[in-house]
């Protein structure tokens, strides 16, 4: 009898073997690069000679935090994050999802699909489209339209306006995701709650702020986490549109990392930037887990 019990025990545990290949794969191609990125961040490894490098201690980090370009890059990233992700995608996303929830079914379907097409468009295409749409010379779509109204052409990709332009493009790209999350959140609110609040005399604005937003708390936290991480890791759209310029005006951290590594050949320094991005992302994720635990 003891034997039978033991046999059953072993057979049951065989299934845990499926973890092994997956962990090996993740280990080599995901975890090991993380380790490498930390390791190389303490070296002067260069694209010109990958075999030879020396350890510099914290010099790369020290140099970064005393460099105006890097501080400026953090500043640009934060503005890009706050305005395009939090205000543009999340807040606008809730509003649009709420407005959509009161409209007729087919209308809702059409509008949602249009917004989603943007989210589904590959970023290289999106970047090229936005570049031409905002083009100054020759006039892109927006400037041609402005011309019809007798307004002078605007250089949307100039030093002053480029950051605003990539923010708008990024809101355009990401809004669909937030709208989807919030639409599914709103449809999860029981209709009787909405009816009750209506009978209790709440107007649409009170209903939005007092009922919808509090009930969407979990969706909001999930959305916030995901879009912050997406935006922090964003590269392609901005790289295609502006390449980080003009004059570093859209030099978000990922682009700064890329340029440091592949234009300036300083792979060690680029790894240090990568580590900082990773730490930021981890901090955001942990904040999210803590705020969910509160429930």
């Amino acid at each position: 009898m003891l034997k039978a019990a033991k046999k059953k025990f072993n057979m049951q545990n065989l299934i845990y073997l499926v973890f092994i290949p997956t962990f090996i794969y993740l280990g080599i191609f995901f975890l090991y690069p993380i380790y490498l990125s930390i390791k190389y961040s303490f070296t002067n490894i260069s694209l010109t000679d990958i075999g030879n490098y020396t350890y510099l201690g914290f010099l790369n980090y020290h140099n970064l935090f005393t460099s105006g370009t890097f501080i400026n890059s953090i500043y640009t990233t934060v503005i890009f994050l706050v305005v395009s992700a939090i205000i543009g995608q999340m807040f606008l996303g809730i509003v649009v999802a709420y407005l959509l929830s009161v409209t007729q079914k087919y209308f809702r379907l059409i509008i949602t699909s249009i917004i989603l097409v943007a989210w589904a468009t590959p970023q290289v295409t999106a970047g090229i489209m936005w570049y031409s749409t905002l083009s100054y010379i020759p006039s892109g779509t927006v400037n041609v339209f402005l011309g019809y109204f007798g307004i002078h052409s605007i250089n949307f990709l100039s030093t002053h306006l480029a950051l605003m332009s990539i923010i708008i493009a990024n809101v355009w790209l990401g809004l669909g995701f937030s709208v989807l999350i919030f639409s599914s959140g709103i449809s999860g609110i029981s209709p009787s709650i909405m009816k009750a609040s209506r009978i209790d005399g709440a107007n649409p604005f009170t209903r939005f702020f007092r009922i919808v937003i509090p009930l969407l708390k979990k969706s909001i936290i999930t959305d916030l986490l995901l879009i912050t991480l997406f935006t922090l890791g964003a590269f392609t759209l901005v790289y295609v549109m502006t390449g980080g310029g003009p004059v570093n005006s859209t030099n978000i951290m990922t682009i700064y990392q890329y340029r440091t590594g592949f234009s300036l050949f300083s792979l060690g320094l680029a790894n240090a930037i990568g580590v900082i991005i990773i730490v930021l992302a981890l901090a955001i994720s942990i904040l999210y887990l803590i705020s969910l635990r509160g429930d």
Binding site: Y32, L36, S37, L226, L229, G233, Q257, L267, I284
Partner: peptide
Amino acid sequence: LLGVLLLTGFPVFSLLVPTFIFFID
């Protein structure tokens, strides 16, 4: 599961530089 979740939100772009070196090696 938490580990998997953390990797899900990982800023993978930042891994391309070390992976580039790793792949050359």
